[in-house]
């Protein structure tokens, strides 16, 4: 019964709606407000449940071809996961090491990881882009990006 993927999704959405509703019912209500802070969230929560049920009972319309599309080769999945990890590392180190250094490392290794092999161009771009962007932001726009361990 759970075979068509849209049924699984609909159950997941119902779970989300129940969690959301649970939080909505915790919201305080004030006697002097006509429509309370929780009114809209409650409508949304129940609305989502209703729509999810509707989705659950719609017959499957997906063609085989579309299903195929969802199948991602393992190699690609690894690449995506790798890039996500690099993004997380980028965020983590952004304020610690500074914008220029982290961006340099990110662009260089991310491009390399995705199969870019012209190392000299890669090196040049990954150093020039962040540097130009950094100076444009700090000097021209007056927006300070984290300078980090590079002392300027």
């Amino acid at each position: 019964m759970l075979k068509p993927v849209h049924r699984k999704i609909s159950l997941l959405l119902i779970a989300l709606a129940i969690f959301y509703l649970y939080l909505a019912y915790q919201l305080p209500s004030f006697s002097n407000s006509v429509i309370n802070a929780s009114t809209m969230p409650k409508i949304l929560g129940f609305g989502l449940i209703a729509l999810s049920l509707f989705l659950f009972f719609t017959p499957e319309q997906e063609t085989k071809e579309e299903k195929e599309k969802r199948h991602i080769p393992k190699a690609d999945l690894i690449k995506i996961a790798g890039v996500v990890l690099m993004i997380l590392a980028y965020i983590f180190f952004l304020e610690r090491l500074g914008f220029i250094l982290v961006s340099f490392l990110f662009i260089y290794f991310c491009s390399y990881f995705l199969g870019y092999t012209k190392h000299s161009i890669n090196f040049l771009v990954s150093i020039l882009f962040p540097a130009i962007l950094y100076s444009a932001f700090t000097m021209l726009l007056g927006i300070s990006l984290p300078s980090g361990i590079i002392p300027f």
């Binding site: 000097m139 007056g142 927006i143 300070s144 300078s147 002392p151």
Partner: peptide, 19 residues
């Protein structure tokens, strides 16, 4: 609107820019 006036960043930088 983080309008950090230009000269702030320069002065801060001149002070050794950092922690």
């Amino acid at each position: 609107l983080p309008t950090l006036a230009l000269f702030t960043s320069i002065t801060l930088a001149a002070c050794g820019g950092g922690e």
